[in-house]
Design a protein around this nucleic acid. Structure first.
Length: 852
RNA sequence: GCCCGCUUGGCGGAAUCGGUAGACGCAGCAGACUUAAAAUCUGUUUUCCGUAUGGAAGUGCCGGUUCGAGUCCGGCAGCGGGCACCA
């Protein structure tokens, strides 16, 4: 028989599945539903290995659940708005819409070549008005419900390009294209009140039982609930009081300074007639807007000269600094510093020569000297008047009472979570449906005027937002007073689209955003699969969005994703030539001595370690090329083999070869069996020989094992079991009774079990085995529990925890028998050297440990 | 800087609840088939000592709990992800 012709086979079955509409689904109340979803891609134009991995994982789940009798919804769409389309417009003079839709078309073809079981009739593209019109409506509803509001916030501003930069466009504090020093600038922007749901989003994390713990923990920390107190410090010579937030009000007697954010109103007021302070604030504002940039910048302060009066002692004054590490967005934008018990405060105090007053000491020592290390731990208060002798927690309570009594503060809960800024000063996004009128203020676009569509006739030859400088688009009359007004020219953050697309799939062509009945049937997503990089933002925004939609009457579903699987990245070795230039893997080969050399000129190549595939490092392998040379099934099998899904996967040529070899081996095993198989419907012989009986047992163990592996997403283990079982089937030679039957049953089951992973080859082999129905429509095999247990077990015998031998024992034999058998073992007798064992520990069916 | 992970042979990984570390594969080595190559098949492969039966060590590092630790606890190191305008 010829080698497996994957091209012909894969195309054939893809066509059959499409023609028979195997994966198109409707609501069916008679079946349990299962909604499996992979994070939809940004249509960059070409799929990458990360996509191949993500969609293979999802497809295995979808096909497996379908075989298990579920009504499976498995859709695909395009996260089609975003920056790269605008960059392409600027660089290649192609319109973002044209670029995006062409990319979608080619990526769809590439995905279809993978044989994924999508219901393509539900495909959506978020840049289409039929999609984004609904979110404009949602935003108006959010606004009515008090969940959308405007406030000023900071953006990265490129003064040369006169444009707002994304964090990723700021490199070492400079604009990526202009190279200009980036400034922070205040803009009035739209926000969604996710903070209204901080507590609910936090509490509900507990209900997300099928999410990875680490993602739940990351969301928990992101929301960042902290119990503390607001404390008022009167300011010498001014009427106002400085309000600070602290979680360590127990250490108030260790206060040595106050610090406010450069963006605190007080800092602004003082800067008005202080050029030095103005310059300091400007310097602070040159640090980017990202938290990482602010946190890693050198901690600096500016003494305002103002003094704050200690809330518990009018005679005690501390200086007020403006400090670059105090965030206006968190707490009250002002802190008090207690250097002895906070490392950052200590560093600050040492730098500016401020006093360090220890007020908490560890319970087990009297040592209280503070050097360069603060003591943030638990302990007992001292140096603290009425708090002396109290442990930290009691001191907090006592201090809160005192603050309340003096009207100097109160306990409060603060969250790190900030409201979600959804405004973007960009063209390629969903227009925000509001109108600015000089007389009426901010006016919503009337619902009958939705959608507000993006104008197509825009240019990217000038800096700034094309919507803003479009000759006509933004000029409208005010819906309320009719006078000339202007449209909002900001568009939505693209997280807006991805916060509800999973609901749109329930009814992708409906006139409403989603049909309630259909959404109620399909949601929540039973299994969501995507990269760990979305652990916080996308997933948290979606959780909030569903709650906001619920408040506006769209749905009763609160949690969008009941189950979550976060996959690791696809990595590859990196290569550099002698000049330190990156090389593509395809430009590198091994010479006769096994050294890596350049294909072009044979010069030596430095091989770097494996890193996430990225265009900048050129360590990419094009999936299209792989699928072309090996077929989709080979690529899929490789993606599932070896590495568990949540870990990083190393792409290797030998790995893909191994997968390819196995598929050919399987094809040979069935196409050219070593002896003639009985007919498909041949009955089980009454007596099986030893080998056939062992094969039958292995068959049922394999079914049970792989089912469990797939339930737990242990795809690599499932592949190992498949290979183990096919190794066993290859040892059958038909010389004893029942082997023919066992081989046929084994092969058929093997094909069924590998079906979700390599669907084309499995479908082909299923037909080859004489089936006229589709494997894609065939129920999953069932293991016979009676065949899963063995009569005897191998028990490990240890002396003092060291393995000294193994013995075969009847399953569940008496502990005494196991002990007897162990003590009779020559190696054990020798180790004991005539002495009686002190103790014998027997773990039934597993181990006997003789302690001497 | 803060938050979250990960670390097991030459390599990817397996080891259900604390109970035989290295399943399965890759690469390597030896062999079979072949005029030859490819493909395929067979054997072998944690390290060290030993001709061998066998013995010792071993899951990033240091320490602890336990009859028994890859697994639990404390500390450390290295690598990676996220940090609110990349998606």
């Amino acid at each position: 028989m010829a080698r497996y012709n994957f091209k012909e086979t894969e195309a054939k079955w893809q066509q059959v599945w499409a023609e028979k509409r195997c994966f198109n689904v409707e609501v069916d109340e008679t079946k349990p539903k299962y909604y499996v979803l992979e994070m939809f891609p940004y249509p960059s134009g070409r799929i990458h290995m990360g996509h191949v991995r993500n969609y293979t994982l999802g497809d295995v789940v979808a096909r497996y659940k379908k075989a298990r009798g579920f009504n499976v919804l498995h859709p695909m769409g395009w996260d089609a708005f975003g920056l790269p389309a605008e960059n392409a417009a600027i660089e290649n003079k192609v319109h973002p819409a044209k670029w995006t839709y062409e990319n979608i078309a080619s990526m769809r073809t590439q995905l279809q070549g993978m044989g994924l079981s999508y219901d393509w009739e539900r495909e959506i593209a978020t840049c289409h008005p039929d999609y984004y019109r609904h979110e404009q409506r949602m935003f108006l509803d959010f606004h009515k419900a008090g969940l959308a509001y405007r406030k000023e916030s900071w953006v990265n501003w490129d003064p040369v390009e006169n444009t707002v930069l994304a964090n990723e466009q700021v490199i070492d504090g400079r604009g990526w294209r202009s190279g200009a020093l980036v400034e922070k600038k205040l803009l009035s922007q739209w926000f969604l009140k996710i903070t209204d749901y901080a507590e609910e989003l936090l509490q509900a994390i507990q209900t997300l039982e099928r999410w990875p713990d680490r993602v739940r923990l990351m969301q928990h920390n992101w929301i960042g609930r902290s119990e503390g107190a607001r404390v008022f410090f009167p300011i010498v010579g001014r009427d106002e009081k400085l309000e600070v937030f602290t979680t360590r009000h127990d250490t108030l007697f260790g206060a040595s300074f106050c610090a406010i954010s450069p963006n605190h109103p007080l800092a602004g007021a003082l800067a008005a007639n202080n050029a030095e302070l103005t310059a300091f604030i400007a310097e602070c504002n040159r640090i980017g807007t990202s938290e990482a940039a602010i946190e890693t910048a050198e901690k600096k302060g500016f003494d305002t000269g103002l003094k704050a009066i200690h809330p518990l002692d009018p005679s005690w004054q501390v200086p007020i600094y403006v400090a670059n590490f105090v965030l206006m967005e968190y707490g009250t934008g002002a802190i008090f510093g207690c250097p002895a018990h906070d490392q950052r405060d200590l560093d600050f105090a040492r730098k500016y020569g401020l006093p360090v007053i220890p007020v908490v000491k560890p319970t087990d020592t009297d040592a209280v000297a503070i050097g360069d290390t603060a003591f943030p731990g638990e302990g007992v208060l001292f140096n603290s008047r009425f708090l002396d002798g109290l442990p930290v927690e009691s001191a907090k309570t006592r201090m809160a009472e005192e603050l309340r009594r003096l009207d100097a503060g109160q306990p409060t809960i603060s969250y790190r979570l900030r409201d979600w800024g959804v405004s973007r000063q960009r063209y390629w996004g969903c227009p925000i449906p509001f109108i600015h009128c000089q007389d009426c203020g901010i006016v919503p676009v009337p619902e009958q005027d939705l959608p507000v569509e993006l104008p197509e006739d825009v240019t990217f030859d000038a800096p700034g937002n094309p919507l803003d400088r479009h000759p006509t688009w933004k000029h409208v009359s005010c819906p309320e007073c009719g006078k000339p007004a202007t449209r909002e020219t900001d568009t939505f953050d693209t997280f807006f689209e991805s916060s509800w697309y999973f609901a749109r799939f329930a009814d992708a062509r409906g006139a409403e955003a989603f049909d309630r009945n259909k959404a109620d049937y399909w949601l929540s997503v039973d299994q969501y699969i995507g990269g760990i990089e979305h652990a916080v933002l996308h997933l948290l925004y979606s959780r909030f969005f569903m709650r906001a939609l619920k408040k506006c009457g769209y749905t009763d579903v609160e949690e969008p994703f009941a189950g979550l699987l976060t996959q690791g990245m696809v990595c590859h070795e990196t290569y550099k030539d002698e000049n330190g230039k990156w090389l593509f893997p395809s430009q590198v080969a091994k010479d006769a001595d096994g050294r890596s050399v350049s294909v072009e000129d044979g010069r030596p190549v430095t091989v770097g370690r494996s890193e996430k595939m990225s265009k900048s490092r050129k360590n990419v392998v094009d999936p299209v090329h792989i699928i072309d040379s090996y077929g989709a099934d080979t690529a899929r099998l490789f993606m599932l083999s070896d590495s568990p899904p949540e870990r990083d996967l190393d792409w290797t040529d030998s790995g893909i070869d191994g997968a390819w070899r196995y598929l050919n081996r399987l094809h040979r095993l069935i196409g050219e069996p070593s002896f003639a198989l009985p007919a498909p419907d041949a009955p089980r012989p009454d007596t099986l020989g030893d080998k056939a009986a062992a094969a039958e047992k292995a068959l049922h163990k394999t079914i049970a094992g792989i089912s469990e592996d797939l339930d737990k997403f242990h795809f690599n283990k499932a592949v190992a079991r498949i290979r183990e079982f096919s190794n066993l089937l290859e040892t059958l030679d038909g010389k004893t009774d029942g082997e023919g039957w066992a081989l046929r049953r084994g092969l058929e089951t093997l094909v069924q079990l590998i079906g979700p992973m390599t669907p084309h080859l499995a479908e082909e082999l299923w037909a080859l085995l004489g089936h006229e129905t589709l494997l894609a429509e065939t129920a999953w095999p069932v293991a016979d529990p009676a065949l899963l247990v063995d009569d005897s077990v191998t028990v490990a015998i240890q002396v003092n925890g060291k393995l000294r031998g193994t013995i075969e024992l009847p399953r569940d034999c008496a502990k005494e028998d196991a002990e007897q058998a162990a003590l009779a073992l020559p190696a054990v007798i020798q180790q004991l050297d005539g002495k009686a064992p002190r103790k014998v520990i027997v773990v039934p069916n597993r181990i006997v440990n003789v302690v001497g």
